[in-house]
Amino acid sequence: MRIPSGYGPRLSGAGGFETFSWYFFRISGVALIFLALIHIFLNHVATDVSCTSYQLVAMRYTNPFWRLYDWLLLTLALLHGMNGLRVVIDDYVRSRGWQLTLQSVAGLVTLTYFMLGTITLITFQTAGALGPGCLR
């Protein structure tokens, strides 16, 4: 009955990147359930998505908590999702050369998006941005 299926505990060879990846999926996944669902609730239920504006973001970001929140969501979602893509590429791409090529592209995309998101979150200026809008 002990057939590796991707589900269930790893059978042998504990340690190494795949074991780390296995734990990372689960730990980041639990955190993301809260981070992502609260994020959706805030932007689609608490205020309608049409209220989202530069001014609303500015108001939120006067509190550094939301920058940290969004940065955690960005980082964990990106690593969780791109690690998932890595597994999918390994599953469907047979040629070693193509695997290496696609994994490298995925790695570069991860790094680029992480930097773009982080720079946006850090450099956004709230001063002077506050004006009328859908403010609470």
Binding site: S53, Y54, Q55, G81, G84, L85, G117
Partner: peptide, 29 residues
């Protein structure tokens, strides 16, 4: 797997649309 890839696709779009914040309030809005 399908929902995971779908959410990832949205994330890659969403980081870019949030990146519009870098171009000021008119572009972002």
């Amino acid at each position: 797997r399908i929902t995971g890839l779908g959410v990832l696709l949205f994330l890659l779009i969403h980081v870019v649309d949030i990146g519009l914040l870098n171009f000021g309030s008119k572009v972002y809005n």
